[in-house]
Design a protein around this nucleic acid. Structure first.
Lengths: 98, 98
DNA sequence: TTATCAGCTTTGCAAAACAAAGTGCTTTTA
DNA sequence: TAAAAGCACTTTGTTTTGCAAAGCTGATAA
């Protein structure tokens, strides 16, 4: 019965990134920077750095447009992101059930 | 629908500490340093520092005895540890289900 | 007596986390 | 029209965390 914590994905091994993924996957529509920021109660810089990490890993896609005259950045999970996250959750469950 | 990642317990917000708790809670008997080390595949120092953190938080109890003539350190989750861990898992589930 | 085991502690470095302030651009608002 | 405010960052600087590797202690086995 190997408790291999090493199959947990480091990209998701932090509450902020976990929260970001949970929010994105819980919504069928893209989620904006400000929605994320308020939902997760984070500072701008903190959120920006964590989503940047997820983007760099290829787990979220970023799209920038204008809503009316206001800039609006939204995030969606990529298909690799969805899969990697699911695998992470599976590994978590496995770990927690021995 | 508040995705409050802030209810996650920082003491368990790391794969090693998560693994330690999972192992300890999965076993009805105390678990030795070496069992933990092998099960989780960690170096001495790394394991030592993480269990020290859990001990400092009051989440695991440490007992030192001799088995035959060899020293043997074992770990058990405290009742606060069990409760806190359960709450952490509840918070996790809640987060993951919106 | 040299080596080995258990269980740490120390050292030293690198990466990560975070808050706070700054930035550039646009748009309200007074 | 000048000041304020919103969006989405980036930069700066500090603190915290993680980790491997080496060292250490006290005991035993070879």
């Amino acid at each position: 019965m190997k408790h291999t914590i090493h199959t947990l994905n480091k990209a998701f091994d932090h509450r902020v990134r976990l929260g970001v993924m949970a929010v994105l996957l819980g919504q069928s529509d893209p989620v904006s920077f400000n929605e994320l920021k308020e939902t997760l109660d984070l500072t701008d810089g903190n959120l920006a750095s964590h989503v940047a990490a997820l983007e760099k890993a290829g787990y979220v896609q970023v799209s920038k447009q204008f809503v009316g005259k206001k800039p609006n950045t939204t995030y969606t999970p990529s298909s690799e992101g969805k899969q990697a996250f699911q695998e992470h959750l599976n590994a978590l469950e496995k770990l927690l059930r021995g």
